[in-house]
Simulated assay, not measured.
Amino acid sequence: MSVERVSIYRAPTTVADADAIEEWLAERIGGRVEVRDRFLRTDGDDSLAEAFAAARVRSPGERETGNTMLGAVRYEERAMAEPERAGGVLYDGIALRLAFNDALPVGERGLDHAHVVLLDRAIATWGDHDARWHKRVVVPGQPSIVSVPGLYEAPAKPEAYYREKERHALLSGGAPPREVLENEVEGEFLIASDPRTTDALKGYALAAVHFLETGEAFCPEEGCRLYDAHYQEDLIEAQLREPEFCPDHADRYGGG
């Protein structure tokens, strides 16, 4: 399947620069990329609030999702209208992708038109191997969802990060400021509103298009932009260091 057109949707409550991602992506796939406004405002309808409520993860080890009580739906309606108020909720990424597909214009659902939704919500997929939810940066498909919070939360940080966070919580009753963690924890990792966010998201946007064209979700080579990193250090190596791609994907997208 050849993708003839790509639409990237903004996440205005985040530092992600959709225009910079569009420019980078267009250089690697030969144009045919556009930026659209926030997906939940331009293509959403009232049913999406219910879809978000139904996709809520209840607990890390509980497969069943959802809370469609009136209060939860009202919260999701407010979060869609005022996205800066949303946060602290984890959602089933596959359920959201299905709901988003239903919200796409009927004439744009074909696999020749890739939709990449930059989302300001945390998403997860269920792991049958360990019966737990796992946070994700991207859930590829039509549309693909790229979670900006997932960039900071899904790949694991160094163990010292979690120890320092726990120690600070015991001493002060709260989480330490981000700059404290950065200064006191060795190792590289991204934090919320990190200035490297846009550059790190570029590879995930490409992975979404690559999946529709080839059926290949990710690359097994750790240093490639298309690698699905499970650790922050590996994410930084893949997304922020040269070369951009493994030899096979460099032939397709340039660089090397």
Rank of each mutant, 00 (worst) to 15 (best):
F218S: 15
I8K: 00
E233V: 10
E159R: 12
V33P: 01
P12T: 03
L40K: 02
S2P: 06
P158W: 04
L171R: 15
G71F: 09
T198M: 09
L226A: 06
L96A: 05
F189Q: 05
H230G: 12
V185F: 14
E213I: 06
M80K: 10
A51L: 02
A20E: 11
R109V: 09
G223Y: 14
R241V: 09
A20Y: 04
A200S: 13
G44K: 09
E213L: 08
G254H: 09
E82A: 15
H115F: 03
Q232A: 06
L170M: 15
E77Y: 05
A250I: 14
G93S: 04
L240S: 08
E184W: 07
R74E: 15
S59W: 15
A205N: 07
R38W: 14
F52K: 04
R178G: 08
E166K: 10
G256S: 14
K135C: 01
L119N: 03
M80H: 15
A208Y: 01
I21F: 04
T13Y: 04
S172P: 00
Y161C: 08
L118Y: 06
P149C: 03
P158L: 07
L206H: 13
H129A: 13
H210P: 08
E233H: 13
L70H: 11
L190Y: 01
R178K: 11
P143N: 06
G215H: 14
W24I: 01
P177K: 14
F39Q: 01
I123L: 07
L118W: 03
P195R: 10
E188I: 04
M80Y: 11
I191K: 13
E82Q: 15
G203W: 00
L25C: 03
R225C: 04
E179G: 02
S147V: 00
N67S: 14
D194N: 12
G30V: 08
C224D: 03
H230N: 14
Y9P: 02
K157S: 03
F52Q: 07
E164S: 05
E62Y: 10
A238G: 08
N67Y: 12
I123K: 00
L104H: 03
R74A: 10
R225M: 15
I29F: 06
I29L: 04
